[in-house]
Write a protein that binds this DNA or RNA. Sequence first.
DNA 1: GGTTTGACCATAA
DNA 2: CTTATGGCCAAAC
Length: 119
Amino acid sequence: MPVPPEDRIVGPGFRQKVYDWVARVPEGSVSTYGDIATLLGSPRVARQVGYALSALPEKHAASVPWHRIINGQGRISFRGDLSRAELQQRKLEAEGVAFDAQGRVVAFAERRWRLFSET
DNA sequence: GGTTTGACCATAA
DNA sequence: CTTATGGCCAAAC
């Protein structure tokens, strides 16, 4: 018997891929919208990555570490809902990710998940 | 099927 | 350092 639509993370094509890759980001590491978009095939779909995560219900927040996805500048990007931004920063800090006074991830280049060198 | 909307990114000032 | 503009592409209306 198939899984109910609400119980799975499937969406209209693109979103499902985004969730699948985001779920692979290990704890304590971070990734960017651009990197996820590149994995999907085109670095230009970074917007759709963020758009997909915006549509991610809180129910799937446990299985999809949306808080580990930040922008290419190593900063948390939210377009207005700062309440979510504080939540994201708090979650990252709980995993050992630190932020400086400017809101950027400390040692971002090293914490950035190495997508192209899985070894 | 055209228009609007975005948790983005690169570039310019 | 910050702010502004254009481009990009999928999903919603």
